[in-house]
Amino acid sequence: MEEDKKIATRESFGKALCELKDENIIVLDADLNSATKTEYFKEKYPKQYIELGIAEADMLGTAAGLATCGKIPFATTFAVFATGRCYDQIRTSIAYPNLNVKICGTHGGITVGEDGATHQMLEDINLMRGLPNMVVISPSDDVQTKSLVKEIAKYKGPVYLRLARYATPEIYANDVEFEIGKGIQLGDGIDATVFSTGVTVSEALKAQEELLKEGVDIRVVDIHTIKPIDKELIVKCAKETSILLSVEDHNVIGGLGTAIADVLAEEYPKKLIKLGINDCFGKSGKAEDLMEYFKIDSKAIVEILKEKLYINNNSK
């Protein structure tokens, strides 16, 4: 993990769009292109860019119409507006007819920071994974975001792509490629598995490093695709490790933890500790401080794992 090279997945997304060569790609914006980073695409391919103004519902409907005519629309706005404000538009005009629309929500989670609760979307994974036909993707770093943007452009069908404002370290080498629905296991530790997604993957990796110093060897699993979820990998880790933990920048209801628990309940019943936002709204503050406050950072992961492994927290 390259701590000094931090980049937000929204930034990687903006750059990745510019690398898509297909002229059927259309990027739609609702007055947020400097925040969602679609301004880069607008600059490079102005003819494939449509501005809808502050009208997210209209943007998603327009995207649906374009998709029926063979275009590959990427409709972009903040996660909260994309999925919350426009849930019914997505349901009726995109998911039910199974149209090839990519719904891209930047600013997911409490790591939005200072803008506070209204803009910190903590329910989007829940809303989108509950929709038939919808694929839900939440990448963790620059390389993964760029690779998955290419993958979802090739994939035919509706996709929700959750992106972050908060800059996180680079995790993967440049040549790593990712497949929709295939999780990534980082490390072979057998003391615990930490399932993570998006901004919490680098926190889990920091925790892995910390714990190793104390002789605790955990593995981190990067679940970049929350739906369809990698059942095989989840069951494998449940069999191979004693403690299972999930950590996410999302409500503990309906997010990554729930998706994993759904698999465990049916395939390999085992206890799962869920770290996330405990069914409350967010608040203003610095992203780092909020991650600590809501206990989804590396410190929280280390603490809870030490507690579960009967390692005295005060022994240093």
Binding site: A57, A63, A64, G65, T68, Q89, S93
Partner: peptide, 17 residues
């Protein structure tokens, strides 16, 4: 040509087409 049912959505889709 388009799935509809929840009112108010068709004109946006028509614009896209």
């Amino acid at each position: 040509d388009m799935t509809t049912g929840s009112l108010g959505q068709g004109l946006s889709v028509a614009n896209g087409m």
